[in-house]
């Protein structure tokens, strides 16, 4: 089976220049891989570096050491050392990301927020909107909200917009950062269904789930992040 994502010996620390250059180690020696059609879950207590790992995989955090090899198009690229332009291309075509919080743009409707990633990939705007509609309906977002900018939505409503935005594309790799945190049971179940559908479609998923029910429902395996605790190696 294909392995579109391979992480090897990745390390990350923060240097706080405003506090006399103190270095905060986050993770070190991070190594794992995700196969197509598999959903792996990062496990470990808060502060173990789960979110940081996800952000490095999305190019949102810089990587100090190691490699993140991604199957991008016909080739392999190392995301840890890729140029910003390559990272943008990877985000557009290969790696999708559902963040914890929706970063809204003033005056753009929920529907267009969801449709945008498809349009960015060169999709037709109306086709993208149609797909956005069906996803928002599946996630039980009231139709009267679709045309409104999500800035004023509740946490759960924003989260569903965010999930729809992340799931609308057919990225071969999908990163999920607590997508169900502020959802009720019914919508959690919808997310579980969506994840199952992605797995069936051969997408490699990596997520963080604090909700044990959801985690058990979607996880093929759990990657224990405490094994990568930077202190262990640094000490």
């Amino acid at each position: 089976m294909a392995t579109p994502l391979v992480v090897s010996d990745v390390a990350k620390s923060f240097t706080m220049h405003l506090r006399d250059g103190v270095t905060l180690p986050v993770v070190a020696g991070v190594s794992f891989s995700i196969r197509a059609g598999e959903c792996a879950v990062l496990g470990g207590p808060s502060g173990a570096g789960k979110s940081s790992i996800l952000k490095m995989l999305y190019g949102n955090y810089a990587v100090d050491e190691g490699q993140i090899i991604v199957q991008h198009g016909d080739g392999l690229i190392d995301l840890a050392s890729a140029s910003p332009r390559t990272v943008l291309s990877v985000r557009r075509h290969t790696i999708g990301y559902v963040s914890q919080f929706l970063r809204t743009v003033p005056r753009v409707s929920a529907l267009d927020v969801v449709a945008e990633p498809l349009v960015e990939r060169g999709g037709d705007r109306e086709t993208a909107r149609a797909k956005a509609r069906s996803l928002l309906a599946q996630l039980n977002l009231p139709e009267k909200l679709w045309a409104l900018p999500p800035a004023t939505f509740s946490g759960g409503e924003q989260q569903r917009v965010n999930i729809a935005r992340g799931f609308i594309t057919e990225h071969p790799i999908l990163l999920l950062d607590e997508p169900t945190a502020s959802l009720d049971a019914r919508n959690r179940d919808v997310v579980v269904e969506l994840i199952a559908a992605k797995k069936a479609a051969g997408v490699a998923l990596l997520g963080i789930f604090h909700d044990l029910d959801v985690r058990d429902a979607v996880a093929d395996r759990v990657i224990d992040v405490t094994a990568f605790a930077a202190g262990k190696i640094a000490a």
Binding site: H17, L18, G59, N60, P84, L88
Partner: peptide, 21 residues
Amino acid sequence: SGLTDRVLDDPRAPYTQLLVS
């Protein structure tokens, strides 16, 4: 320099950290 969200979310240079904070 770099991706905008990378520079803003993980600023590396002392001056950028000052700006972002």
